[in-house]
Design a protein around this nucleic acid. Structure first.
Length: 884
RNA sequence: GGGCUGUUAGCUCAGUUGGUUUAGAGCAUCACGUCGACAACGUGAGGGUCGCUGGUUCGAACCCGGCACAGCCCACCA
């Protein structure tokens, strides 16, 4: 079959992916092999894969494929998350574009639209995962709103409620005014910015509310909330305000009388030392209000507009109202001054609006008891975090200081909270209405109660925390055969940004419901940024389209590019240049394949046949010997690196093994002469090496390796499931000879370059060495690689030549044209200076009595060897210089 | 405000318990090259007083203190 000039990924990717699917290589059922389980961090169902996912999925696929080829029964579960807020916002937007207002729909109608939307767009991410080559078990695709999953979430809710770990109550929570729902603390992102501090005049008054001309000045960031003020607070030790004891003041604009209270919470040094207390709209004020039994006046509606309670500017948005309040205060001469001020505001992670602290009745999970086992699992070492040093402290701190988790959301897209109320506000928690009625009967002796289910749904993370277990129906059918076999998972690969949202909570859920850790290792990938280090974002337009990249470079090149520049745990600066490098790597291997095919077409001789072989058997046998050992050496390096999750370094090792050792050295060493056939034994060995290389690389670049695997030889099996052989320990002596040979070749080529000897011009090489045996074994390789017409040994320096010194050996290069000894002399002098400097430092060390006394014997011996080597090299160079 | 991490070649990073020939790789750069796999290539080269500063040590990129800069996480001061 004719091979194309370059590797063409488009032509083979779909073919092989389909083939792997047809062969069911990715499908797993429990058997006698050990399981290697990975659950995908489920992306948002209506999302598209961004570069962060790409990195994540690639890392998982590498680990899974490697395990699959190493005797494990691998099971990688794909799926997606219903992402309640994000998806609901998209559906609401879609409806709006169609001219439909969410409010005009019933819950059922809305959910029908939402499921339609999910069916339409949910497939996009799965297609992208497949295009990337991910070896997921598609039969196990799970969605967090699948029936069994939905039931599992409800079951867990009821269970935790019965255990007293879920409660309902009015608390101050974070409110998203755009989505009109409560948020958890984790869903709020804080940003530092420059705000303004307004100093407002509050007139004092008597207990009847009669205004005085005296006033107290108060600093606030949020003048639009003053209508909700229910006190002014000062520090009891602040002498300036001591005379205000039992006093009152009037809220500006609305002239409501409020008490002046005293609490040490107030910092006299900040602002004016007096604080307006607005319990409905600030967490600190709320706590202060509780302590002093203050009235709560909520002046905001759920959408962030001012409520009736505000009395003025009712219905205006909070920020518009702020401007109006400021203007009104100014007009009444009650605005004293405005300062700029560094502050921090909380924004909703999903909708981006400024979050409003709001008192509201919500459902909460008590976290303290759940946190302890999750903490122990990681601190005790049952779960290992990679890179550990970086995240262990963060994880610990969060769990040790964890607060209760607000899990109710005022949305429709999600699992509806299984709490049931009757008209009198009595409540039970039960999965079905029928069960709820039974409970009502039991608890309240009410038969056939008229019940209404809680309108709210649960936080998305309240379903995703069950993921490692419920993808195997571990919650809905506890102890089933699959969950027993696959749980706990092997490794969880995810972004460090969801360590609290998801990782910590999965560990809690695992410990609570399975009584076992959910996975043994956690591997945190860094964040993908652009090459200038900026976050990827739609606004900057620096977030590439994955499918377009795959079309352009091929999936293997994308995987290569993202992995080669992805040091463990660090952020990754994404640069298309690295994809190019991946594409070039594909071509390099493709061309090596073409070379082998070229040799094959020249009818390889039968080894030991009648015809004389054209190669020096000794030389080719060294080449194959050497590469065999080099391969073993690299394989154990790769294994060790991968075990430490140093995937980028492992890839670099393989890359260099293939490009440098195999293509640049080995193939050149065994390359037959012009129009000569290759020795069949060497050819066979080479096919084996190439095969092993493809196997080693396959987890990283599955498509090109599978293709080459099948083109190297007719096969009935597939690389995808080819099991790794045991690594044989490499022979150090052979490896060392290889290193020496490369060094000699490079040294001589360097001289050729500097002397401007054309590649076609031959040289005569004379070797002066005490170790002839080594060079005899590689003589023909050496001759070919430096284009020497002859290689001979000598006991004496050869006049009229250029000398190259490698180790203890000298190489005299003789040519027919005159040589530039000036250049040679400069180089030798430079080298001499370097060695002399080095010698001085070694001698200094050895001359130091304390060193000789304290250093370990092997260190001392090494230093002495260094000294001897340096002295010898200096002597050799001096001799060479004398001969010039 | 508290905590964590980092600072090594133009860029991105290695450098494993302090000693392994006075610091390594990839990319980028430069020179030469179209030779029968490969110019998306080959051969070779140049490039770093390891952020600064004290200290420990016979010996420090590595250990300790201080400083500077960068990044991240956490925190209710109006």
């Amino acid at each position: 079959m004719e091979l194309s000039k370059n590797f063409e990924p488009q032509a083979i990717e779909n073919k092989w992916y389909q083939h792997w699917l047809d062969k069911k290589y990715f499908n797993s059922t429990p058997d006698e092999r050990p399981a290697f389980t990975v659950v995908i961090p489920p992306p948002n169902v209506t999302g598209v894969l961004h570069m962060g996912h790409t990195l994540n999925e690639t890392v998982q696929d590498i680990l899974v494929r490697k395990a699959r080829m190493s005797g494990f029964n691998t099971c990688w579960v794909p799926g997606s998350d219903h992402a309640s807020i994000a998806t609901e916002a998209k559906v609401v937007q879609m409806l709006k574009e169609k001219g439909i207002d969410k409010k005009s729909l019933s819950r059922q109608e809305f959910l029908r639209y939402a499921f339609e939307w999910k069916e339409k767009y949910g497939g996009i991410i799965y297609n992208q995962i497949a295009r990337l080559g991910c070896s997921v078990d598609w039969n196990r695709t799970t969605f967090t709103m699948d029936d069994h999953y939905y039931q599992a979430v409800l079951k867990v809710f009821v269970d935790l409620f019965d255990k007293g770990l879920i409660y309902r109550g009015a608390r101050m929570i974070n409110w998203d005014v755009a989505a009109k729902t409560a948020l958890s603390d984790e869903e709020v992102e804080y940003k530092d910015l420059e705000g303004k501090l307004y100093y407002v005049k509050y007139f004092l008054c008597d207990e009847n509310g009669a205004a005085s001309t005296k006033f107290i000045s108060i600093a606030t960031q949020r003048p639009e909330t003053i209508m909700g003020d229910t006190a002014i607070c000062v520090n009891p030790n602040d002498e300036r305000y001591a005379k205000l004891k039992n006093g009152f003041a009037l809220v500006p604009l609305v002239n409501r009388k409020i008490p002046i209270i005293f609490d040490e919470y107030v910092d006299p040094a900040f602002g004016t030392g007096a604080l307006k207390v607005t319990p409905a709209h600030d967490i600190n004020d709320y706590n202060l209000g509780l302590k002093h039994a203050l009235e709560v006046i909520d002046t905001l509606n759920e959408d962030g507009t001012l409520s009736e309670a505000a009395q003025i500017y009712v219905g205006e948005d909070r920020f518009a109202a702020r401007k109006k309040v400021i203007a009104a205060l100014e007009e009444k001469n009650q605005l004293l001054k405005v300062d700029t001020y560094q502050t921090r505001l909380g924004y909703s992670q999903r909708t981006g609006v400024v979050v409003e602290p709001r008192i509201s009745t919500q459902w909460f999970v008590k976290m303290k008891d759940l946190a302890q086992p999750a903490l122990d699992a990681v601190v005790g070492g049952d779960i290992t975090i990679h890179p550990g040093d970086k995240f262990l402290a963060t994880y610990k701190y969060w769990l040790e200081n964890v607060k209760d988790w607000c899990i109710s959301r005022q949305l429709w897209w999600g699992q509806q909270i299984p709490a049931w109320y009757d008209a009198d506000g009595r409540m039970v928690v039960a999965i079905t209405e029928l069960e709820a009625k039974e409970k009502f009967n039991k608890q309240f002796a009410i038969e056939n109660a008229q019940l209404r289910q809680d309108e709210d749904v649960l936080d998305t993370w309240f379903s995703s925390w069950l993921w490692p277990s419920e993808v195997f129906n571990g919650i809905s059918e506890p102890g089933n055969a699959e969950v027993k076999y696959y749980y706990p998972g092997s490794v969880l690969v995810t972004g460090q940004d969801i360590i609290f949202f998801w990782v910590a909570r999965m560990i809690m859920a695992g410990m609570e419901f399975e009584k076992q850790i959910p996975f043994k290792d956690v591997y945190f990938t860094g964040m993908v940024r652009d090459k200038q280090g900026r976050k990827m974002s739609k606004q900057l337009g620096n977030s590439p389209d994955l499918l377009q990249l795959i079309d352009q470079y091929g999936a293997d090149a994308v995987r290569f590019g993202i992995m080669i520049s992805s040091p463990a745990g660090n952020d990754l600066l994404f640069d298309e240049g690295s994809l190019e490098q991946g594409r070039n790597f594909n071509n390099k291997m493709w061309n090596a394949l073409k070379l082998l095919k070229l040799w094959a077409s020249r009818e390889p001789q039968v080894a030991g046949g009648a015809e004389p072989t054209t190669q020096t058997p000794l030389a080719t046998s060294f080449a194959t010997d050497w590469f065999q050992n080099r391969l073993s050496e690299a394989r154990s390096e790769v294994d060790s690196l991968m075990q430490q999750f140093r995937l980028s370094e492992a890839l670099k090792t393989i890359y260099s093994l293939i490009w440098d050792d195999f293509c640049s050295w080995y193939l050149e060493w065994i390359k037959p002469g012009f129009e000569q056939p290759i020795d069949s034994g060497v050819y066979k060995k080479t096919i084996e090496f190439f095969t092993e290389l493809m196997q080693l690389l396959h987890p990283y670049m599955p498509f090109v390796t599978e293709e080459i695997y099948h083109r190297l030889e007719e096969r009935t099996d597939d690389l995808c499931v080819k099991q790794f052989e045991k690594v044989i320990t490499a022979d150090a002596h052979t490896l060392h000879t290889g290193v020496l040979l490369k060094e000699v070749i490079t040294g001589i080529r360097d001289v050729r370059n500097k002397q401007q000897i054309k590649p076609k011009e031959t040289i005569f090489l004379h070797i002066q060495t005490e170790n002839k045996v080594i060079y005899e074994s590689v003589m023909s390789i050496l001759a070919k690689q430096v284009n020497a017409a002859s290689v001979s040994f000598t006991r004496e320096p050869v006049a009229g030549t250029i000398t190259v010194v490698i180790g203890k050996d000298k190489f005299y290069i003789e040519t027919e044209k005159p040589l530039n000894t000036g250049q040679q002399k400069d180089d030798l002098v430079k080298e001499l200076h370097h060695l002399q400097g080095f010698l001085v430092s070694v001698e200094k060390k050895l001359g130091n009595e304390k060193f000789v006394q304290n250093a370990k014997p092997e260190v001392l011996a090494l230093e002495q060897k260094k000294k001897a080597d340096a002295e010898m090299k200096i002597r050799i160079i001096e001799e060479s210089l004398a001969g010039l």
